[in-house]
């Protein structure tokens, strides 16, 4: 146990108290108007200055960024923060390569990546890979070669696999079992979700991500046997529909990170807080989008994910 995290965990425990509960989110989802919701949100941790709904969305973006920065500041393992930001770096790399094909692409880079998008762009343009951190160097090199040889689709599949491989390897290296198990859960849920949403099952072999608890051979059995095996590992999953599968897997992930509540020291509470905050931001965004687009309260409430508190 790392006793150096005493201050960090103390701070996180204080911040956890300000996380929104599911009953509060359900209450604001039931509010009649967007104004009422904004008023309720103002009374929580999101009390920043905002006047319009648009500003509320940027407030959520800023909150996500601030949470990542806070966790980065509190983490003492230098390799952990880039690992948590890896999906955003991967997104930026993909976007850069897509912009190579079509210069008119105007999508934004993610500000949450550990590597600055401009640095990544320069490194790719000048083939000066030494400028980028070592853990991302090989991925960037291989991506360019694959992108030139086979195209975007293969590149996306490659990057996805590499991302999970790197996250698992890193979490093993730093001997963080909590994080490793969390990533394994994510891999399993991703494989299950892909398996049940895929029309042609033969493509599943190509997109299967290695590293989870569920091995590829499990998915080669009859559907009933596959479901039985999945229920053996994850009894809370709902496999009937894609949307309910996605919701139940998100809920299981949140339930998993709740284990961090028993840790008094270490990185676990920090990581749990980061994912709990991400989940909370998603829930608020769902309510706001739902209200803005006149989605029924029951649909919003049905799709609200489990909360950390």
């Amino acid at each position: 146990m790392n006793h150096n995290y005493a201050y960090a965990v103390g701070k996180i425990r204080a911040l956890e108290k300000r996380l929104l509960s599911k009953s509060f989110l359900e209450k604001i989802a039931e509010s009649g108007s967007l104004e009422a919701i904004t008023q309720d949100i103002r009374e929580t941790a999101y009390s920043g200055e905002f006047a319009e709904e648009r500003e509320l969305f940027s407030l959520l973006r800023n909150e996500r960024k601030a949470t990542y920065n806070l966790i980065e500041k509190l983490l003492e393992e230098p390799s952990l923060s880039p690992l948590l930001r890896l999906r955003y770096d991967i997104h930026n790399l993909k976007l850069l390569l897509k912009k190579e094909i079509d210069r008119s692409v105007s999508a934004d880079f993610s500000p949450l990546g550990a590597i600055s998008p401009s640095l990544l762009e320069k490194a790719i343009q000048n083939k000066a890979f030494l400028q980028i951190p070592s853990y991302f160097r090989e991925i960037a090199k291989k991506s360019i070669a694959l992108f030139q040889a086979e195209g975007i689709k293969q590149l996306e599949q490659f990057l996805d696999k590499e991302m999970w491989k790197l996250t698992l390897d890193e979490s093993k290296e730093i001997k963080n079992i909590f994080l490793e198990e969390f990533f394994k859960l994510q891999i399993d849920f991703l494989n299950i979700r892909n398996f049940f949403s895929l029309g042609e099952k033969e493509n599943f072999d190509v997109i299967f991500i290695v590293g989870g608890r569920l091995e590829k051979k499990i998915f080669k059995k009859e559907r009933a046997a596959i479901e039985k095996k999945i229920f053996f590992f994850y009894s809370g999953l709902e496999l009937d529909e894609t949307s309910s599968l996605e919701k139940s897997s998100d809920d299981l992930l949140i339930n998993y990170i709740k284990k961090a509540k028993i840790y008094s020291f270490g990185t676990e509470p920090l990581i749990a807080y980061l994912f709990a905050k991400e989940g909370e931001l998603k829930n608020i965004k769902l309510i706001l989008l739902g209200k803005l687009n006149n989605i029924g309260v029951s649909v919003i409430k049905e799709n609200l994910r489990e909360t950390y508190v």
Binding site: Y88, K94, F109
Partner: peptide, 16 residues
């Protein structure tokens, strides 16, 4: 609601 805007936008860009 489940995916950050820039990620969703990036995923939906399909130049090919």
């Amino acid at each position: 609601a489940q995916v950050p805007e820039e990620i969703l936008e990036g995923t939906l860009i399909k130049p090919e």
